[in-house]
């Protein structure tokens, strides 16, 4: 299957390894990956801060860039959610609304794509150790992808999953919230870091670069010996 990759700006600029793992996992599952170089950011930082008009520029650019794709896959629940949000942003625009609706229909988050479209739950990955999983808010609540990551992780050979206490609580990222309300964000991420420590896991796995950057950055600052991994990297471990 021909898959058009929406890598996300975080992966492009900060987490190449996640992008590489995504490509390798999907290729191993028989997909042919296309990466349109016109892709930029989905517009979420500006959009969530209330700058909808400024964000629309990025949205239009992305809609045009991905127009010809058959299916779009992205290793981020939050950015996939944003792609699906475009149709609401352009709800009163007769030209862009149908284009945004078509974009939404063919967009999948990575784990959702592997489990629901490719119908694969065991990707043949192998990773020894104890891990815990942080379910990111946009992916679970807004996109509604809850089970796919757990199904995939349950088949990773050698990996023991421990439940994360208070997993449902946000890690305190929230895009610009992390800097705008830094003091509150700190308390939220600290509680998340403490919950991770409680599990005694060696790996913290997530499916969203922003949340992992937040929790990982705080764990590093607090000298926590936990390795942060994007689920694509776990699925690409052999």
């Amino acid at each position: 299957m021909k898959v058009t990759l929406f890598a996300t700006c975080i992966v492009d600029m900060f987490q190449s390894d996640v992008g590489i793992a995504t490509v390798e996992v999907l290729e191993r599952l028989g997909c042919e990956i296309v990466f349109p170089t016109g892709q930029v950011c989905c517009g979420q930082p500006a959009y969530n801060s209330g700058y909808v008009e400024d964000a629309k520029k990025a949205m239009k650019k992305m809609i045009a860039t991905f127009e010809d794709a058959e299916v779009i896959v992205t290793p981020s629940g939050s950015c996939a959610t944003m792609f699906k949000e475009y149709q609401h942003v352009f709800k009163d625009d007769p030209v862009w609304r149908p284009r945004a609706e078509r974009l939404a229909e063919k967009t999948y988050e990575l784990t959702e794509f592997i489990v629901d479209v490719l119908k694969v739950e065991d990707v043949g990955a192998k990773l020894d150790g104890i891990a815990t999983y942080h379910p990111s808010c946009h992916m679970t609540r807004l996109l509604g992808v809850k089970d796919a990551p757990m199904k995939l992780l349950s088949h990773v050979e050698g990996l023991e999953m421990q439940p994360l206490p208070n997993a449902q609580n946000c890690c305190g990222f929230g895009g610009t919230f992390a800097v705008k309300m830094g003091n509150i964000s700190e308390q939220m991420v600290d509680e998340k870091v403490d919950s991770v420590s409680e599990t005694k896991a060696s790996y913290l796995i997530g499916a969203d670069g922003g949340c992992l950057m937040n929790i990982g950055g705080r764990m590093q600052r607090r000298d926590k010996p936990v390795k942060v991994m994007h689920i694509a990297e776990v699925l690409n471990s052999r």
């Binding site: 800097v179 964000s185 950057m213 590093q220």
Partner: peptide
């Protein structure tokens, strides 16, 4: 404001693209 409480990763030397 970010780095007051957490580390930030250095941008990739080689971008994913």
């Amino acid at each position: 404001a970010w780095t007051e409480i957490r580390d930030f990763p250095a941008p990739n030397k080689e971008r994913f693209r």
